[in-house]
Every structure is written in C-alpha cells, then in structure tokens.
Computed example of a mutant assay.
Amino acid sequence: MSVSPAVALRKAIISRLASDTALTGALGGAKFYDEAPRAAEPPYVVFAETQTRDWSSALSPGAEQFFVLSVISVQRGARQALDLAERIVALLDEAPLSLDGHHLVDLRHLSSATRREQSGRFARADLRFRATTETLG
C-alpha cells in the first residue's frame, strides 16, 4: 500500500524542521504535532488544515496540497511566534524535500497571518503553503 501524498509530505516536513537545531532549540525540542497533546507546553508547531486536490497529468498521477502550519506561543505579543514562523518559512519555502513514494515538484509559502487566542493568552502565527507532488512508479 502506497503512502498518501499528504502523509508523505508531512513526514518530510517534520524531518526537515526537526533537523534544524536553531528551530528545535527555540521550541525547546522537536515539538511538531498533527494535534498537540493536552499537556503540550508552547511554543510548538501544529499542522492545522490541509486541502488536497487532484493534480494529475496524462502521464502521471499527482496532488496539489494547500496546508497551514500554526506556530503557538504563550509569550505576550506575537514576537516569538513571528520569529519561529520566519525560521519555518526559510526552511520550507522551495525546499527540495524527499518524499516517500512521491516526487515534490514545488513547495511555496503563500501567506502568513497572526492572531491572539484565549483573551490574548496565546499568540498564533498561521503559515499557508502550497505543494505539488507526483506519484512515483
């Protein structure tokens, strides 16, 4: 059974982000989650929403993915969230990631947005990306 393009992309993204000592140091460890555990201490990064569409050609099956990585911080203000977001964008925008069972054609950062949650207790930076992949073999 082949790995879905969304799962393959997430695995490659986590590997790329976790290998960056500056980022993991700022997070206090490799804190990258599909869903943050209840006891997770910010700052951390969570995969928020994902949308996958068919991007097949006549010669090969493919997928177009839009996804959001959210940086969660408890520091007052958005500075920490923005600093972490900037590092993540630098690591992922147009990165040549290796995916299990798929070829990454393109990975681009599309936009960023910040907001406060829970009466200003948490700062959040949402990073929207677009990736296109082709299925191998």
Rank of each mutant, 00 (worst) to 15 (best):
S2V: 05
V3N: 08
V7Y: 01
V7L: 13
A8T: 05
K11R: 10
A12Q: 06
I13G: 01
I14R: 00
S15I: 10
L17W: 00
L17S: 01
A18I: 05
A18F: 05
A18P: 06
A22S: 12
A22K: 13
T24C: 04
G25H: 05
G25R: 04
A26I: 07
A26L: 09
A26Y: 01
A26T: 05
L27V: 02
L27G: 03
L27N: 05
G29P: 06
G29T: 09
G29Y: 06
G29L: 06
K31N: 11
F32N: 07
Y33H: 11
A36M: 06
P37E: 02
P37G: 08
P37R: 10
R38W: 15
R38M: 13
A39W: 00
P42I: 10
P43C: 01
P43L: 02
P43H: 02
V45I: 15
V45Q: 03
A48E: 06
A48H: 13
E49H: 14
E49V: 15
T50N: 00
T50P: 02
T50L: 02
Q51G: 10
Q51Y: 05
R53C: 00
D54V: 14
D54K: 13
D54I: 14
A58I: 14
S60G: 08
P61G: 06
A63M: 07
E64D: 09
Q65F: 01
F66G: 03
F66W: 11
V68D: 04
V68W: 07
V71D: 01
S73E: 01
S73V: 09
V74Q: 15
R76D: 11
G77D: 14
R79V: 13
L82N: 12
L82C: 08
L82G: 09
D83M: 05
L84P: 11
L84I: 15
A85N: 14
A85H: 14
R87M: 08
R87S: 13
I88N: 12
I88K: 07
I88Q: 07
A90Q: 08
L91N: 14
L91F: 09
L92N: 13
L92V: 11
E94F: 00
A95K: 02
P96K: 09
L97S: 10
S98G: 02
L99S: 03
D100V: 03
D100E: 15
G101P: 06
H102C: 05
H102L: 04
L104H: 07
L104M: 12
V105T: 12
D106E: 09
L107V: 07
H109M: 02
L110P: 02
L110A: 01
S111L: 12
T114K: 07
R115W: 00
R115F: 06
R116T: 14
R116A: 13
E117D: 15
E117R: 15
E117N: 14
E117A: 14
Q118R: 10
S119D: 10
S119W: 03
S119G: 12
G120P: 08
R121E: 03
F122S: 11
A123H: 06
A123D: 10
R124M: 13
A125H: 07
D126M: 03
D126W: 11
L127F: 10
L127V: 08
F129S: 04
T133G: 08
E134D: 05
T135V: 10
T135S: 00
L136A: 13
